[in-house]
């Protein structure tokens, strides 16, 4: 699919939880290109978190292989390199901050991998600046808003200088403004620092902003492509209980009613353009 060098390569991975009757993921293959912003979209229980944890070597595939920058996640020796390279942000902003002071939390990962003190201070300051949280460096995490907590979590990952950030529904517990704040932060990191992003979400609006979308349902990747390609498959998406942007849904209905509209309409502007093309006013 991707032309770029994959930073994460998931190859025919099946994962079954202990004592589970069915695999949570089945024969999943996905390449994440260097610098790409890939959204993984799926409803609850589809297997998104399982996929994320496999990419971070928190779980090991039952079958198949996963490579992060060419390192096999099953290779014990490279475990810390893999986790440093593919940093992970979780859903609950409270349950991933460890320290009682923001800057110490950002330093947590660096302490773990044994970064020397002076370099640690520099990297922590840089990471806090990158998520625009410098002013809160000395605050206690529990006094911050959800969006701010997630940005601290991002800073903690960023300080490790990862190639890739995996965000597992990082906005699911936030209010709309917090959601925007976190997504914007991650998008700008992708654009400006070239950090690869795997953005796991069940919000269709967020997936629409990605370079590429992989749709997961019942442990399999059902659709993959640009948001335009994916959201034009309105019926398939609906079967998986997933929303599509309103204009894509409208276009699908109009096509069914016999209007020869383009299939890949996402925005109101595109819709207006198509409609004027078909019915030139005179």
């Amino acid at each position: 699919m991707t032309k770029r060098n994959p930073i994460i390569s998931v190859q025919h991975v099946t994962y079954t939880y202990e004592e589970a009757a069915h695999p949570a993921l089945e024969d999943v293959s996905l390449d994440i290109g260097e610098g790409e912003f890939v959204a993984v979209l799926g409803h609850n229980g589809s297997g998104k978190s399982t996929l994320a944890k496999l990419m971070n070597a928190l779980y090991l595939p039952t079958e198949g292989k996963i490579f992060v920058r060419g390192m096999d996640t099953a290779d014990d020796e490279r475990l810390w390199d893999i986790r440093r390279e593919a940093g992970m942000i979780f859903q609950n902003p409270d349950n991933q901050l460890v320290a009682t002071v923001v800057r110490e939390d950002v330093a947590f990962g660096l302490e773990n991998i044994g970064v020397p003190h002076d370099e640690m201070v520099r990297r922590v300051d840089e990471a806090l600046a990158a998520v625009r949280m410098t002013d809160f460096a000395e605050s206690a995490p529990h006094l911050l808003s959800g969006g701010q907590k997630q940005r601290i979590a991002i800073a903690g990952i960023l300080a490790m200088q990862p190639g890739c950030i995996i965000a597992d529904e990082a906005t699911a517990m936030l209010d709309p403004s917090g959601r925007r704040e976190v997504l914007d932060t991650v998008r700008s990191l992708c654009r400006e620092k070239g950090i690869t992003v795997v953005w796991i979400t069940h919000f269709m609006e967020e997936a629409a902003q990605a370079d590429r979308v992989a749709v997961v349902s019942d442990g399999r990747i059902r659709l993959e492509g640009t948001p335009r390609e994916v959201f034009s498959r309105v019926n398939e998406m609906r079967q998986m209980h997933l929303d599509v942007p309103p204009m894509a849904a409208l276009a699908a209905e109009l096509r069914e009613a016999g209007m020869p509209l383009r299939a890949d309409i996402l925005t109101v502007e595109e819709m207006a353009e198509e409609v004027t093309r078909l019915c030139p006013s005179n």
């Binding site: 944890k53 971070n56 928190l58 810390w80 986790r83 440093r84 940093g87 992970m88 979780f90 349950n95 991933q96 460890v98 947590f108 990962g109 773990n112 991998i113 903690g156 990952i157 490790m160």
Partner: peptide
Amino acid sequence: MAMEARCY
């Protein structure tokens, strides 16, 4: 899990 993911 989060601590492990951060190399603890």
